[in-house]
């Protein structure tokens, strides 16, 4: 067959990203549920999380889950960040583009006409994913700073002391949950991206792929 001679493009995203995405997603959910359990032991705001949304059953169980998930998330995070830097994925796919491209893609997105071509990250995706990566790093760093305010005292100091760091950790969690709401809603609106993150997709040769090219760089 003639077609067998054609070089088929690789599936995207790469298996590194797909595997670390789902390990990260599960451990992140476990960290949020167990974090809410820990929060409930001494709330800093006038509300508690409902028991059904928490993980661990009581404070000790919540802590056990929180740290177990932390090691998993950190391992997946190190692999993902290493791959992202070394493969050029961050530079090529996630580096945010200029405000004009963001404005244009936002306008398209609001009319539900934003393209999601395999292998291409539009301006909104770049902004959201870069944003949530930075927030996730701040969540981990502020979490470490309230876990080890003596051994990692410099980190606690950077976050403004123990009590401020605790509130920053909570605020970063809130931003991650806000991201999850948007991210999951968008993935459900464009199910091909959801399949893509499980099985990978081969970029098609059709010209629609390059719709976003040539934006403000």
């Amino acid at each position: 067959m003639l077609s067998s001679r054609r070089v088929r493009p690789r599936r995207t995203p790469s298996p590194f990203i797909r595997i670390t995405h789902w390990i990260g997603a599960l451990s992140m959910l476990a960290m949020i549920g167990s974090g809410w359990q820990i929060y409930n032991a001494s709330p800093i705001l006038p509300f508690e999380f409902p028991a059904w949304a928490t993980l661990g059953g009581w404070l000790g169980g919540g802590i056990a889950w929180h740290f177990a998930a932390m090691w998993v998330l950190m391992a997946a995070g190190v692999v993902y960040l290493g791959y992202g830097v070394l493969s050029g994925h961050f530079r090529r796919d996630l580096r945010p583009v200029g405000p004009r491209a963001i404005g244009r893609d936002m306008a398209q997105a609001l009319r539900f006409r934003l393209s999601h071509a395999a292998g291409h990250y539009n301006a909104i995706q770049r902004l959201l994913y870069t944003g949530v990566l930075i927030v996730a790093l701040l969540t981990v760093a502020s979490g470490l700073s309230i876990w080890k305010p003596v051994q990692l005292g410099w980190l606690t100091w950077l976050f403004g002391g123990y009590d401020v760091a605790r509130r920053i950790h909570f605020a970063m969690m809130t931003l991650i949950v806000a991201f999850l709401v948007i991210h999951i809603a968008l993935a459900l609106l464009v199910p091909s991206t959801l399949f893509g993150m499980v099985f990978g997709r081969r970029p098609s040769a059709a010209p629609e792929v390059s719709v976003q090219e040539g934006g403000a760089r």
Partner: peptide, 15 residues
């Protein structure tokens, strides 16, 4: 008694 259910998975069963 609570300890017995301490590391139980109220949350994960939800997932």
């Amino acid at each position: 008694l609570m300890l017995k259910g301490a590391l139980s998975l109220g949350g994960l069963s939800m997932l």
